[in-house]
Write a protein that binds this DNA or RNA. Structure first.
Lengths: 120, 120
DNA sequence: CTCCTTAATAGTAATGATTACTATTAAAGT
DNA sequence: ACTTTAATAGTAATCATTACTATTAAGGAG
């Protein structure tokens, strides 16, 4: 696996952004540095970085957003405006986080299931 | 809001399935009852049912899956085969659930953020 | 430093889940 | 039964993402 300029720039953009950028938004920021970078390159590198657990994917209706992993945290997502708010505190299942009203929450565990573990 | 035959059938299919069906899979099952039901109708009703909190959406790379809400539970998703396993027990953050190996988990809270609450 | 191998890229086309559009149908109230 | 209009069927369009391919450049060997 080669360390390309494109990959370094993409990781740098995610790590230095306070927002949760989409691939398209990362692409726009990349073009300020490499004007002819390809959108496919952005997608491929974002996918690789997620696989390497260097960034995190947040699945949203308007496409995936990407987040840095500098500090372990979860997210509060507004059903109304789609805003993604970082939740850095330990999770306590109250009905509010700050002044945000929780309607629902979902916990997804990911890993390798027992069937696949047996086959490996 | 009218109670149509299509909507009743779609909710019935979700509630009587042990799997976590995609819109396409629900569509195929629907066609056994209404042979000319439209895929758009299935999507629209699934979206409505999620909004009404009668079913739950699980976002996956191969498209959304839908799940009944007969019992509150979360999911274990296998990174290898994509299998979705229901987790009905209380959540304890161990490194295993049953014999499934947890690599990561994500918690997404959803609701209305303080900005939007002020505007309402 | 130069050459070589090949992984990664740029540019473009294709895919596929989902949504939009519109004439027609059928809930459900009068 | 009549009327209103929300919901549907069928189809086209959208849009995020992936696939494809000729070209470029990372980085190891000499």
């Amino acid at each position: 696996m080669r360390v390309t300029r494109q990959k370094k720039i993409i990781l740098d953009i995610i790590n230095h952004s306070y927002d949760h950028l989409t691939a398209e938004q990362v692409y726009i920021k990349c073009r300020r540095v490499i004007s002819n970078i390809s959108l496919g390159t952005v997608y491929r590198n974002l996918n690789n970085l997620v696989d390497e657990r260097k960034i995190k994917r947040i699945k949203m209706k308007d496409g995936d957003h990407f987040d840095n992993l500098l500090e372990k945290h979860n997210h509060f997502i507004c059903d109304n405006c789609g805003r993604i708010i970082d939740i850095k505190d330990d999770i306590s299942l109250e009905y509010k986080i700050g002044n945000n009203k929780i309607v629902d929450y979902e916990i997804n565990f990911r890993g390798i299931c027992e069937n696949c573990l047996r086959k490996e």
